[in-house]
Design a protein around this nucleic acid. Structure first.
Lengths: 333, 333
DNA sequence: ACATCGCACTTGCGCGCGCTAGTCGACTCA
DNA sequence: TGAGTCGACTAGCGCGCGCAAGTGCGATGT
């Protein structure tokens, strides 16, 4: 008779209470394990059973309104192309949060100014960023009533050293591996995509610092690699005596090695190349790319726990050593 | 004095109203453009300005509670590895929804039974799936009070032919291209990942149907390709006279071509291979992989519009021809 | 015998907003 | 002059839930 609204009459806590002859508050106390309430086990079970029987599901919007917490964690992803490893990373973070009753929502900032930033729409309890936010962004987020903003820069304070955890070790391992293979003059191969400029600069910086700290190693600087520039870069490397290349990621490495194969330049004899991320591409390429693997799942879990500790005002998780970068030596070094 | 709750006192519609000496209802009418209300332009502007000045942002949970719509679209992603193209797809869908005031949230079903399916936590207005839901899942979702569930299977009804839109054309184009190149005996190379089994079967089926419909073409069936089986498969193909391979995706194609290169089997002379998805891998590989490119951005937009038309009960969008699969012929065919 | 206390609950407010059902004065029309 | 209309608002309910502040009662203590 009524409009289609009646199509799915939701089951609310009132329904459960009425059907049991109890008050809604009691039902609420049971379902939330509200501390400071004494509920006999018998009642507890009755409520729980009836809730299940009727198919009761708490309404998140109402809960968020009343409690002030949405149980949502918003992760702002970088604008750069999502590499393969990121997916595992997110899956694991999501699963961990889920276990704690939180939902992970991801967003990519829209360059042309997103009409409604997701943190306004969703009102998450925490906003995390994989790259630092600008002060303006932080102000915006805070102004939307979000008290917890977590970015690498923020995290730097309370947890010294954790800042670069996500990517820190890779370039160091790359350089040390090349040096151990007997390479003496190293160059960094950067991607052309401007969105990656900052991260690439970070990786390159760390590689350079590692290299210059090692005796007998010469650091030859950065080259930007794209389809047009790869030939020039390789030529310059050869004439400059570069015998080892630290690539920003596997794509860049593949482009270099691909060019080498086409020009019959022997890899790794004349030029060793190591990538980063251990994408499927690295394993499949001919010759198979040496690269760096990071325990992205572990990192995802860590990230999630960090978010939880923030909302709960509890002690932050400790980073485990397994999260460091691991060398995957294949055919290009 | 009070607890840290006062840290960020939110600006509500009441604040805007009070500061203007108006009632909250008037403010609400202005901010929502509520139909059937006559608001003079002067008042409208006053409200709008004051809202901006005070930094008012509507509280989504409250709005969702009152209006019954969360303005969230939940997209359930397949469990399979996210290929490269998916990212653009999601970005575009997200942007389109955003423009309409909706937020796109994605989730991956957790095999070991997610504690809280995101559709219960989030109460989205629509749940969309990239792969069909099981009847049980649909019942679950419906039971959570969600009236709009959209999956390829569902969409089949109202929009005949649109069902396979997402992936439909690729295999056909692959087969036609190989045939046009003079290949006569074709095989399908399937991935080993069991999560991909269903989708792979669909692609393979369409390829087989296309092939058997063409005169002079022999369809040799499916081979599963992984690191261990690729050698056997290629050997069997050669002895069976297979001269063209339709690969499930670029990864599978790369594995085959990689093996061919290592065993000095000439590609494409002896064996032509075509991939699917046009990942970065395809362009970078040596030899560069022929593949299929799909306008994922367009598809994303289409998907978003489909969701919007569903919640608004309005006419569904029309699929544009640009969304079809495009051949990218490179060196392996 | 009376105050006290812990238990097992219930009453009811408030979260912020959408929206229906008004109110009230200015204006038109007969 | 009175009835009616219309524009510009306001009063206030209800969405479902969390939680503070009770309430009634039997058991315990002195």
């Amino acid at each position: 008779m009524g409009p289609d609204r009646a199509a799915t009459k939701r089951v609310t806590a009132v329904d459960v209470a009425r059907s049991l002859g109890l008050s809604r508050a009691t039902v609420g106390f049971v379902l939330n394990d509200t501390p400071g309430q004494t509920i006999p086990e018998s009642t507890r079970q009755r409520v729980l059973n009836e809730a299940k029987r009727l198919g009761y599901h708490p309404h998140s919007a109402a809960r968020a309104l009343a409690s002030g917490r949405s149980h949502i964690v918003l992760l702002v992803l970088p604008d750069w192309p999502l590499d393969y490893s990121m997916r595992t990373h997110l899956d694991e973070a999501s699963a961990t949060l889920d276990r704690a009753g939180y939902a992970l929502v991801t967003m990519v900032p829209h360059p042309d100014g997103q009409a409604q930033p997701l943190w306004e729409t969703l009102r998450p309890d925490v906003v995390m960023g994989m790259t630092p936010f600008s002060p303006r962004e932080i102000a915006d987020i805070r102004a939307s009533g979000i008290n917890h903003v977590l970015t690498p820069a923020q995290r730097e304070g309370p947890l010294p050293g954790e800042e670069g955890l996500l990517f820190a070790d890779g370039p160091r391992v790359q350089v040390e591996h090349l040096a151990a293979q007997g390479r003496r003059t190293l160059a960094f191969a950067a991607p052309a995509d401007p969105r990656l400029a900052q991260l690439s600069a970070e990786r390159s910086g760390l590689a350079a610092r590692t290299a210059t700290r090692m005796p007998g190693i010469t650091w030859a600087g950065d080259w930007t690699i794209d389809e047009g520039s790869v030939a020039t870069a390789v030529a310059e490397w050869l004439s400059a005596g570069v015998d080892g290349v630290v690539a920003y990621n596997d794509d860049v490495a593949a482009r270099i090695v691909g060019h080498a194969v086409r020009t019959r330049l022997r890899v790794p004899d004349r030029l060793a190349v190591i990538g980063h991320d251990d994408t499927p591409l690295a394993r499949l390429f001919v010759p198979a790319l040496s690269t760096i693997r990071v325990d992205t799942a572990g990192l995802g879990r860590y990230l999630a726990e960090l978010a939880l500790s923030t909302v709960n005002q509890s002690a932050p998780p400790v980073a485990t050593p397994e999260m460091q970068a691991h060398l995957v030596a294949r055919e290009t070094t």
